[in-house]
Amino acid sequence: MQMKMVKKSMKITAHRGVSSLAPENTLAAFEQAALLGLDWIEIDVQLSQDKVPVVIHDRTVNRCTNGRGRVADMSVQALKALDAGLWFGDAYEGESIPTLAETLLLAQKHDLTVNVELKHYEGDDIDLLCQQVKLVMTELGIAKEQVLFSSFSTQALTVMQRIMPTIRRGQLWQQIPDNALAILDELDAYSVHCDFHFLDERTARWIKSAGYQLYCYTPNHPLLVESFWEWGVDMMISDVPQDYQSQSTASKPQEFVDA
């Protein structure tokens, strides 16, 4: 009964949108999250050449569009002209790289909470990225509860702590380091985001006992992390959130299914 109670409350984030059903980091993938009734999406943000925050993961457009080149070397107009959907399937031909503003407007429309990962590649101006993200959020009037900043760059999170202190911050690590609590305390962090492959029960309970939210990326097979909920993990960031929904429904006792 205890395991079923844990599963009932499990929370899922759609990684780059529902990237198993639609091209990653596109409005189509974020719409899929809304259609599934999810509460959270995770996105990646970096700057175009003309300093517009755009939603794309890689340093280049090569993998997920019909173009070639570095994101930072292309204007937002050039980026928007690329096809970011056809690589995934014919049904998504013409899907474009969204701006952060477009994505946040969609999130507002569907009441989605957005985990904004601040991407940092060598040579990037972290302060400028953070300032431009703040500008977009301020212009749109995004509620502080609707956004969580995350990054592998502690520097980026430190900047956000200074310029948008009321927005939650989550430190990304592949493997949680021994000095994690000192870093998290300095950041006044809200959450820890780690690669599920490197998480063990002792570390999970250590982070949770210190009072932080604990999120895992990117477990795409729910059964592999079934025990993680018992360790105190709060959220799974997955490409296949629909599989967690199916598992949760299948494992609920009848009174939960009917509720």
Rank of each mutant, 00 (worst) to 15 (best):
M236E: 06
V257Q: 14
D258Y: 12
L224C: 00
C130K: 05
T218Q: 06
G89Q: 08
L27R: 06
I237T: 01
V192G: 02
M137Y: 01
G85F: 10
W87A: 03
K80Y: 05
P241R: 07
A210G: 09
L21H: 14
C194L: 10
T60A: 12
R202D: 14
Q108W: 01
G170Q: 02
L199Y: 04
I167H: 04
M235D: 05
L199A: 10
P177G: 08
T158I: 05
W206Y: 08
L184M: 13
D83W: 12
Y92Q: 03
Q247P: 01
Q171W: 00
S75V: 00
L128M: 14
W173Q: 07
V71H: 04
A250I: 09
P98F: 02
W206A: 15
W229H: 10
H57Y: 03
V55S: 02
M137L: 01
I56W: 01
Y212N: 04
L224V: 02
A250F: 12
N25G: 10
G141E: 01
V159M: 08
I237Q: 01
L38A: 08
Q254I: 13
H57T: 09
L129E: 03
G232Y: 05
L79E: 05
R68Q: 15
Q171N: 04
V6T: 07
E186L: 15
A84R: 01
C216F: 05
I126C: 06
K80S: 08
V76M: 11
V133Q: 03
V61P: 09
R70K: 12
L187A: 12
K4Q: 15
Q245S: 11
L187K: 06
Q2E: 11
R59Q: 15
Q49T: 00
K144H: 08
D188E: 15
T60E: 03
L148E: 02
I207P: 07
R68P: 06
Q46K: 09
V54Y: 03
H221R: 00
T203D: 09
G67Q: 10
T99Q: 07
T65C: 10
E186I: 13
Q108G: 13
S191P: 09
L86E: 15
T65K: 05
K8H: 13
Q77V: 10
T113L: 08
N62Q: 07
M1S: 15
L105H: 07
S19N: 10
L38D: 06
R70Q: 14
L79P: 06
L199M: 10
V147M: 00
A34K: 04
